[in-house]
Structures are given as C-alpha cells and as structure tokens.
Design a protein around this nucleic acid. Sequence first.
DNA 1: CGGTGCGTTGACATTTCTCAACTGTTGTGG
DNA 2: CCACAACAGTTGAGAAATGTCAACGCACCG
Lengths: 229, 229
Amino acid sequence: MSQPEVLETLSTLPHFRLLDPELLRRVAEGSRLRKLESGEILFRDGDPCRGFYAVRSGGVRLFRVTPDGREQVVHHLGAGQTFAEAALLNMGRYPASAVATETPTEVVEIAGEPFSRLFREEPRLSAAMVGSLCMRLISLVERVEELSLVNAGARLARHLLRQPGHGPSGRVRIDLAMAKKDLAAHLSMTPETLSRLLRRWQDQGLVETERGSVTVLDPERLLALADGA
Amino acid sequence: MSQPEVLETLSTLPHFRLLDPELLRRVAEGSRLRKLESGEILFRDGDPCRGFYAVRSGGVRLFRVTPDGREQVVHHLGAGQTFAEAALLNMGRYPASAVATETPTEVVEIAGEPFSRLFREEPRLSAAMVGSLCMRLISLVERVEELSLVNAGARLARHLLRQPGHGPSGRVRIDLAMAKKDLAAHLSMTPETLSRLLRRWQDQGLVETERGSVTVLDPERLLALADGA
DNA sequence: CGGTGCGTTGACATTTCTCAACTGTTGTGG
DNA sequence: CCACAACAGTTGAGAAATGTCAACGCACCG
C-alpha cells in the first residue's frame, strides 16, 4: 500500500539498514511520503508527537523560538537524516519546530502509533536502532577528537592512521574516499594547507601521494605527529 | 543482592537516568561490579559477547590488533561512559578488545542474557536507551559543527549563542558552566586567545564579562561573527 | 580542441600559539 | 589574621601556523 519511495528511503537509513525485509515492510506500512515547499511547517515546538521523520530530499531546519521571539536554529538536516526519534519514544511532544528549507523537500513520516507498537513488540527493531545510533555516536566522538587537535598536521595524521587498510608494517596504501578538497573540508582546513602538508611529508619520506590515494611509509613518525609533535 | 555501587552507577548513566526505580533495580540485578588493575583485559576482539559495560572509575581503552600485530586504539573511555551496547544487541561478538588503563578501574558489567531479555520485554528500557543515544548524538553533532568553524571567534560566538538563558532581547547573561581555561579547551583554543577575544568584544561593546559569566549585549553582531564575519 | 575544475605552488596577510611577566583571588598553615 | 603559595586570568611581544589571493599545470569531458 505504501509508495515504493517510502520503502526505498527507509531501506537506506542506518536505523533500518539491517532489518529483514519483512520487518522493514511493516515499518513502511505505517509511513507515508510528504512533499513540502520551502517554509512549510512540519510541526511546532510543543505539538503532540505524531511520528518521526526521515529526509528523502531537500532540507529541514529545526528551531526553537526564544521567549523574546527570536528564532534559534537547533539543527539543519539533509537527505538521509532522521529526526524526532527521541521525541516520539520518550517525550510525547516535539521539543522544537521543524520547517522545510527547500522546494521541493520530501520527508517520510513514520507515524507514531504503528511505529511505537512495532518498537515495543519487535526487539529486533529496537536493537537495530540502538545499534545504528551507537555506530554513529562512535564515529562522531572520533570526529570530535580529531577536530579538537589544534594543528592541521595532527588532524591529518590522525585521520590517515584511522583509515582501514593498514596491512603489512610500512608501505600502507590508503584510498581516499573523497576528493582532496572534500577531505580538507572534513578536516577543517583549506585545500592549500592539505596540499602543502602532504608535499612536505612526501619530501621527508613520510608518505607518498598519488591521485586518490596516500601511502604511509613511516607510521611511527606519523603517529608522533598525530600526538602533536 | 547487587551491590549498592551498581545501582548507584547505573542510575547516573544517561541510558538509565529516566528509568523508574523498579526497572532500574531489575537492570541492576543482572549486573555486577568488577575491579580491574591497569593492563587487565576485559574482553578480546572476537569474544562472544558476555554483556556491556559502564565505567565507574578509572579508564578503559578499546583497541583492535591489526593484521601485522600493531595495536590500533579505537577509543578511550572514562567514568560515566558506556561501551559495547551495540555489540551486545546486534553482533553477538565484541568488535574490539578492552583493557583497563588505570589502577584501580571499576566497571559495571551488565550481563548480556538478563539484559537482552529485559530489553526485549520492556519497551520503556529500549525507548530510554534510544532517547539517551539521540540526545548525545545531537549534542555531538553540534559540537562537530562548532569545532568545524575555522576561526576562534566564530567558535566562541556560536557557543555563547547556543547557551540557554537568552531572555529579553539585548543584555543576556550566560553563566559559564566551567572555568575559562576549560571553556577554552572545549572550544579548542588557548586561554590567552579566549581572554583576548572577550577583551576585544568588551571594548567594542558586544559583551560584558564578569567572573563566571558573560553578558551578551549585541546578539545580532555576535551572530554575524558566528557565521564567520 | 577548448573549457572546466581540481590540485599545486608562491607571496603575503592574518590569526593563533608560545613564552614570559604580571595581577588578582583563593586557600592554607603558622 | 596575615604571609604566602598556588593558580586562574590577563597582557605583551614575537614566532609559527594557517588562511587568502592569484597564477599555473594538468586531467577529464564534451
């Protein structure tokens, strides 16, 4: 009964990726696609909780209105992100308001009642959600630790050392998942700084760089740099 | 039957803080306190999952051993933190090894079987866990956004604007939850830089500073700074 | 063959850190 | 109650890291 888009969107969410198709179908049954225009309000702070949401396309802004009428942005969300899970499962009311920021914006609304029941009756569902939340939590904590490092070199070194593919000691090739400029943005530095860092390390024999990959030659010294040497 | 320390530790965890006492007691029944010395192994990568853990005191390091025998640190944990929830609920095996890093280290072991059953039978428990995970997720995402800002001024401005207590427009007093040097560390800058920023803003009439609090006088211009002006 | 965008490099400006000195507060022991 | 140590916070000067702007090469794609 539910549109194919709903099922497709849900199946790509971290929360539900590991669910078996049957269970996923049951989640989808209680869900529907909503198309919004920029500025359209999805729910308001204090509203009773109808359900939680996954962004399929476009963008959503979560905000609170302060006592003096000012709008405080809590969060921006884009495709593939979910929100208001906690509101649904714990609080019964939305703790912030949500508005679409683009035209068109598509969201999947996972209705509260059928979902809550499913959540209660199907431990596989709650376990999957806890699992996906833990995973994201871990990667975010790592990200915070990475970004907390003061100097750009330490951030890059640490990032490289964390990548998988650290096979035999010495000569470890790491495939960059993104373009260098995106990596730079991820590490909160400019592409120029990234380029110069890699250049210097290459001159010092620490790494080799090719298109789309970096080969670590001396993990020891790189580790020292990551610790802030 | 369970030690009072167990109940006390569990009750301070975000996961369980909102649980009613009866349910908390049942979680505690399946838990026990373990005292470890530095270097003592709690579990190894690949072991079947006995349960998950909360650190009560001391520290725990999670690590993986790479194919070439190198030890890769995945994570450090301190008092009040939990780990291996996802391993327990989804995977059945630990994806990393855990070792105590201090003497003494106390952890509460929440045994897998009683807890899993409780998790399956008590939606309040799973809902509380999902809720606490969502909260932490949100605050971490905000932290990442904050740290991603390139210049120190933007990070500080954004941090101030996010604090609660924004009452009447203009003149908003914000009580600092921590000492200035800790705030500086939180924002990944030196105390000197923080001091100079506040000094400059004070001279420009943007804020006033007292011991332990900052009063925002001109939220508008501060917002511009947070956006990177 | 040209255009477009990424990556690199250089010169320069700015921010931020480091080091050092100084101030004020707090807490402590005599 | 006072001297004094310990520590947070401030301020200044200079160094280092990083960003900005501009130019260029190179690959990829129509």
